[in-house]
């Protein structure tokens, strides 16, 4: 990671922590901020997926899979504003589902990285397992919007810490011959 990217990572991580603290102090406003952030993230991901399919993947063998992936993201994005009026337990379900899904992806990638003998696999595995565990606990324990916001704040702080650890990680590499 270049020095500039390290500095940017540290700055964005710091912002994430500030937002997380703000959410805990003002949970009612924080609830809506959280949903808007969620909608924003999905929107960016949808645009990226659609753009990738039409500019690149449509030319490749098996590229239709990436079309379905883009459609899925667009559907999720279009449905996501309903979260503003939906019962909060649905929001919790939605949020925890995303966290759990992200955790499963991390576990799968960590498994692959372990097979490829990448040194970072343990970090990713811990991250993935933590997300899944967190989603399960949150699903069982959550009863109020304050709790939901606190959980989301915790996710933000946790992600920020992981990003800082990643940025500060030593990048020494061992010598390797092919």
């Amino acid at each position: 990671m270049s020095l500039v990217k390290k500095i940017l990572t540290l700055i964005t991580s710091l912002l994430m922590v500030i937002v997380a603290v703000g959410l805990v102090i003002e949970p009612e406003i924080g609830y809506y901020i959280m949903i808007f952030i969620l909608i924003g993230v999905l929107l960016v991901k949808s645009i990226q997926s659609v753009w990738y399919y039409f500019s690149m993947a449509r030319h490749m063998v098996g590229g239709l899979f990436y079309f379905y992936q883009a459609v899925l993201f667009v559907d999720l994005t279009l449905a996501s504003p309903m979260l503003l009026i939906a019962p909060r337990w649905i929001v919790a379900l939605y949020l925890n589902g995303l966290i759990a899904f992200s955790g499963v992806l991390d576990i799968l990638r960590a498994t692959d990285q372990k097979k490829m003998q990448w040194p970072q696999w343990k970090l990713r595995m811990v991250l993935g397992l933590s997300k899944v565990l967190f989603a399960i606990v949150a699903m069982v324990a959550m009863r109020s919007p304050e709790m939901l916001t606190r959980i989301y704040s915790f996710v933000l702080v946790y992600t920020a810490i992981m990003r800082v650890m990643s940025a500060l990680r030593s990048e020494n590499v061992v010598y390797y011959t092919q």
């Binding site: 990671m1 270049s2 990217k5 490829m116 003998q117 990448w118 040194p119 970072q120 990048e171 590499v173 061992v174 010598y175 390797y176 092919q178």
Partner: peptide
């Protein structure tokens, strides 16, 4: 003239 697996693994994936 080449990159080792650890070098590739630690590459950040950005444009540079």
């Amino acid at each position: 003239t080449t990159q080792s697996q650890p070098e590739l693994a630690s590459a950040p994936g950005d444009l540079l």
